[in-house]
Amino acid sequence: WIARINAAVRAYGLNYSTFINGLKKAGIELDRKILADMAVRDPQAFEQVVNKVKEALQV
């Protein structure tokens, strides 16, 4: 799951650890299995999560 998430978030200019930190700051409580599945099956929803994380990180 970690490898999938890392590959997906790198397309948005983040790395895995920064993304996970941003999830916590944004108050998003999705587990890694769901995030990895979302990255593959629903990229639009995953992009929305990434955008919320970037807002929380102020990137």
Rank of each mutant, 00 (worst) to 15 (best):
W1V: 15
W1R: 06
A3K: 15
R4H: 05
R4F: 10
R4S: 11
R4M: 15
R4A: 13
I5H: 00
N6M: 05
N6L: 04
A7R: 14
A8L: 05
A8Y: 06
A8G: 02
V9K: 00
V9R: 00
V9I: 09
R10P: 01
R10K: 14
A11E: 07
A11I: 14
A11K: 14
A11R: 11
G13S: 04
L14R: 00
L14C: 03
N15F: 05
N15T: 13
N15V: 12
N15L: 05
N15Y: 06
Y16F: 05
S17M: 11
T18H: 06
F19T: 00
F19P: 00
F19Y: 02
F19R: 00
N21W: 14
N21E: 12
G22S: 03
L23K: 01
K25E: 07
A26S: 10
A26L: 08
A26I: 07
G27K: 12
G27I: 04
G27P: 02
G27R: 09
G27S: 08
G27C: 05
G27F: 08
E29I: 13
L30D: 07
L30R: 08
D31V: 11
R32T: 14
K33Q: 11
I34V: 07
I34L: 11
L35H: 02
L35Q: 01
A36Y: 15
A36N: 02
A36M: 08
D37M: 11
M38W: 08
M38N: 02
M38T: 05
A39I: 13
A39G: 04
R41K: 11
D42N: 10
P43L: 06
P43N: 04
P43D: 04
Q44G: 09
A45R: 12
F46G: 00
F46K: 00
F46I: 02
F46Q: 00
Q48N: 11
V49C: 06
V50F: 02
N51C: 06
N51W: 14
N51V: 12
K52F: 09
K52Y: 08
K52N: 08
K52D: 09
V53M: 04
V53P: 00
K54G: 03
K54T: 10
K54Y: 06
E55H: 07
E55C: 07
A56K: 07
A56P: 02
L57G: 05
L57Y: 07
L57D: 04
L57V: 08
Q58H: 07
Q58A: 12
V59N: 10
V59P: 15
V59S: 15
